[in-house]
Design a protein around this nucleic acid. Structure first.
Lengths: 340, 340
DNA sequence: CTGTTAGCGCCTTCAC
DNA sequence: GTGAAGGCGCTAACAG
């Protein structure tokens, strides 16, 4: 047996124990802890003293059987190598501000994983869900509808209609704007690198935006697109592939800063000057982008703010506010630096 | 009213509803879902059909009142700019493998924040806690002891005795080893950069390890230490500060790869050759380290593995295994690359 | 402002 | 293999 099991204070404290010691009814303890202003100052003081002295922590599980739990469930794609960590941070901060807890499960971009994760979360009867993409499978949508909980999707906001409400940017617009921006700086042959698009609407919309811009610009350059793994090594590989495919390529627009960073490092290895020999642009404005030398031209997206905003909107929905089908566009910004 | 509220299936499903439809008692449904082998095949089949058809998801909250919840609580420092994301990933994967959920709250390195976070988690009566540092305050230790839940600390393993069990590395040893490694490569004047150490035992131990190595090596170099913010910009600043303080400094050992990266970029800006004009070493072996050019010499720590391991050990403890005071050293590795 | 009553939905315990 | 009873700890609803 481990030491924690023979510590003296092994009796489990309940509200009724605190109540008994304070000479009041259990419900009064409950009120003292959740709405102190409904209890007279003296009673409150006495109760809090006992709570403090005994180190009592109320059982949320039991409390959540009557009132709904102050828990928000969220599904996040793999955290590694992405800006998702910022979003989690934003959600976590917003939850803390409202006295909520974040129940986090991990999914990938597959519909099965999503469905499983949603089931796991709904089992806890959360106040709502935040999902880092569109809810994909019909089964999952139905489950959520049946459970009757609101959902905020952090996602591409173009095209599809969210279940309740989506928070995000138009990746299409952002990629379109960056492509136009690059053309405006005089680049003619513009390549596009992305990580595998499979099932990821955000990435798909970036590519579509890029293509639309190329078409609108009337540039005829053949196929200058490539998909690589989501690592900086992938960015390095993309540079090799594209410059081999078209040695006259002038700029590479990467669908993430990490890829852009990898491409920049590959140029270093080759001794290529940026942006003279080749220019590079990224997406996301990670800390990395501004600190790399040369600093990387990129699209700034406020992921932390998206996380916070998602929680705020979710709680509004949960409070009964209508949000059906709405999308909240948090916008983006082209950050022009030295790399392109 | 939002659309989810007037969907037809608004009745909340309970086990008794499923039971009624299947013509059995509620307890049989419970058994069918949690220990199917205790129910006859026919009954099982019928029950699962109804469950499927109705989209029933059992209420974990209610279930957790009798059995303890399959939930692990964890406190993480700010996720941004750190390897913590890898650890969360590891914990999340391990939890999923055991059918557990991860309840995540955010703390910083202050004792008050830690105490608040611990209370919030304990309210959910989790199976155990994973904390990304030593449990600092006495109040918090007492709370945990009172609650009777096991704790795994992901932390520096040198010096202090963990409450139950710690998983981590000796940051002292790692920093000592790196400093010796640099000395072994012929560097004489070795600087040390860290982010603010305040309350962070891991960082402190790295500095102590560095100092010990400098002392053991008999190097007399005055004060070549500096603290900067935890950004790559901080690394750049450190380079400026240290080279100004001692122009003959030969190598800078950064307590994180991010800082090292910033220092490398600052060298680029100045046109300084690495490692000839100045050498740079990091800590952590982030993806960044191997992909920067020149690639950064660093200390590799398996953070993902630490996360997984923490969950596994926690579940062992929860199952009654003794672990009091033990530390699990996951080890580190010096990765020698081009930057130093 | 305080208390009484009655569950929330499930699972442990004990029968059959 | 299946079921009946009861309670986990808390709080909504309704008195007083």
């Amino acid at each position: 047996m481990s030491s924690r099991q023979n510590s003296p204070e092994r009796k489990k404290l309940r509200m009724r124990d605190i109540a008994a010691q304070a000479g009041v009814a259990p419900i009064t303890v409950s009120r003292a802890l959740s709405s102190p202003d409904k209890v007279s100052p003296e009673t409150l003081k006495k109760i809090l003293e006992v709570v403090q002295k005994e180190g009592f922590i109320p059982n949320n599980v039991a409390g959540s059987m009557r009132a709904t739990a102050k828990v928000i469930g969220t599904i996040v794609p793999p955290l590694i190598n992405s800006g998702i960590a910022d979003q989690v941070q934003g959600m976590s901060d917003a939850c803390a501000a409202h006295g909520y807890q974040l129940l986090l499960v991990q999914g990938d971009f597959s519909a099965e994983a999503e469905d499983k994760a949603i089931m796991a979360l709904l089992g806890w009867r959360p106040k709502g869900l935040i999902i880092q993409a569109f809810v994909q499978s019909k089964a999952a949508r139905k489950r959520i509808a049946t459970a009757g909980v609101p959902v905020v999707e952090i996602s591409e906001i173009r095209g599809r209609t969210p279940m309740n409400l989506a928070v995000g940017i138009s990746n299409f617009d952002a990629a379109y704007a960056m492509t136009q921006h690059l053309a405006g700086k005089g680049y003619k042959r513009i390549g596009f690198v992305s990580t595998p698009i499979h099932g990821n609407d955000r990435l798909r919309q970036r590519r579509v935006g890029y293509r639309k811009a190329i078409a609108d610009l009337g540039i005829d350059q053949g196929d200058l697109e490539v998909e690589v793994p989501i690592t900086s090594k992938g960015g390095a590989a993309a540079l090799s592939i594209l410059t081999e495919r078209d040695p006259s390529i002038e700029v590479i627009f990467c669908s993430s800063d990490l890829l852009a960073f990898g491409a920049v490092q590959e140029c270093r290895r080759r001794g290529w000057a940026i942006p003279d020999r080749i220019a590079i642009a990224g997406f996301g404005d990670m800390d990395l982008a501004s600190q790399t030398y040369p600093a990387i031209t990129t699209v700034r997206v406020d992921r932390y703010g998206m996380g916070r905003s998602a929680v705020d909107h979710l709680l509004s929905l949960a409070a009964g506010e209508t949000g059906s089908g709405k999308s909240v566009d948090v916008g983006f910004e082209i950050i022009d630096r030295e790399s392109a």
